[in-house]
Amino acid sequence: MPLVKINDVHKYYGDLHVLKGVNLSIKQGEVICIIGRSGSGKSTLLRCMNGLEDYQKGGITVDYKEVTTEDIQVKALAKSVGMIFQNFNLFPHLTVGQNIMLAPTIVLKQSTEEARVVAKKMLTKVGLADKFDSYPEQLSGGQQQRVAIARALAMSPKVLLCDEITSALDPELVGEVLKVVEQLAEEGITLILVTHEMNFARDVSDRVVFMNQGKIWEEGPPKDIFEKPQTEELKLFVNSVL
């Protein structure tokens, strides 16, 4: 059974039909990039995968768990699914270390010592071991996003959802974040990224999903998607971004 299974998902905002029957299966260890114009429903789809948004029809299972917006389900999911946001969403009143240790201690009930060891390990992994006692606002955007990645990793998720994680960064800071993500991909964690970084999508992902008008328009290996687009819409999109 695939790690993530999305089956005919429909979502409405009032009268607006934003997801029109999305089907997608993702295996353990895959790296998936979702691309498409803004308004194509790609971020919405991502947010449906961990219960931040609800959907009206169809079903999503992640790691054998049904995804709903019920608090109890979201809590259970948090142990399998991590999420990185466009605006980092670090907690400004907590130090970097406290940001990372909070959920492991109060959700996973780890001891403070245990959580500290994990937090230090994750910070080292993202190259910020020396920032343990800094506050988020003392860090650059790229550093903050790397802390957010460490915070998600500390929950040892099976899937990491990345929602346009470099869009809010100054261009010169994008590289350091993508390098960390690339390294995670090599380590074999399942990654689902909504992204505008086409070079990244082409070089790192196993599969690229092109969304258009609330549907999956085309999917396949990055080579096929970027070099042999089948539909007019994807051709236009690829030409406009490359």
Partner: peptide, 18 residues
Amino acid sequence: LPKGQWEASRCLGLSFLQ
């Protein structure tokens, strides 16, 4: 407070009261 604070907490599995 930014909505993202609630969302990030939710994604990390914190309950409403937490």
